[in-house]
């Protein structure tokens, strides 16, 4: 029997299930058009997207990651809050004892990227990023987090 989950689109070496990604926007930031497009891109890249959408908190994101056994978090930020919110989500992830990478996409000045990476954000995607680039960034983040530990199952 062919299992679609084995398809090349979703695969990270050694795993058989599709990558599961939680997508959300934190706090007061109503611009979700981009996130909906990203959801579609990741779906077409063979991933399972748990779409949380608008007005989430670090608590609701962490609860979703735990209950959904997600491999990666994708946050969309269009309200210039990235430097304030990034450390909070990174801290929440580590406080929960999770080893789940965080990818940020949205309006983020190039000058802030290195600061975000130092805070522990795995990747930053800018407006105009292609579907291929978005899929690859998410896959690469998951690969990175699996690097030093055995892959699921």
């Amino acid at each position: 029997m062919t299992d679609m989950a084995d398809g090349p689109q979703a695969a990270v070496a050694g795993r058989t299930a599709p990558i599961r990604v939680v997508l959300a926007k934190l706090g007061l930031d109503g611009h979700d058009r981009g996130l909906k497009v990203v959801a579609r891109m990741l779906r077409d890249a063979g991933m399972e997207v748990i779409y949380l959408g608008l007005r989430q908190t670090t608590d609701t994101v962490i609860a979703a990651v735990e209950q959904e056994d997600a491999d990666v978090i994708g946050l969309s930020m269009h309200n210039a809050g990235h430097l304030a919110l990034a450390p909070r989500i990174v801290k929440a992830v580590s406080d929960a004892g999770l080893d789940v990478p965080v990818v940020i996409g949205g309006i983020v000045p190039e000058a802030d990227v290195s600061a975000l990476k130092e805070m522990g954000i795995s990747a930053v995607l800018h407006p105009g990023a292609s579907a291929v680039a978005v899929g690859e960034a998410v896959r690469e983040a998951v690969r990175g987090s699996l690097g030093d530990q055995p892959v699921h199952d």
Binding site: M4, A5, G7, Q9, A10, P18, A39, R40, L42, R43, D44, A45, G46, M47, E48, V49, I50, Y51, L52, G53, T60, A64, E68
Partner: peptide, 18 residues
């Protein structure tokens, strides 16, 4: 449902329930 073409899925129930 999963996409029959790519195996991907948008799981959008949680957003309504939570």
């Amino acid at each position: 449902p999963s996409s029959p073409l790519t195996g991907g899925a948008i799981l959008g129930d949680r957003i309504r329930m939570d």
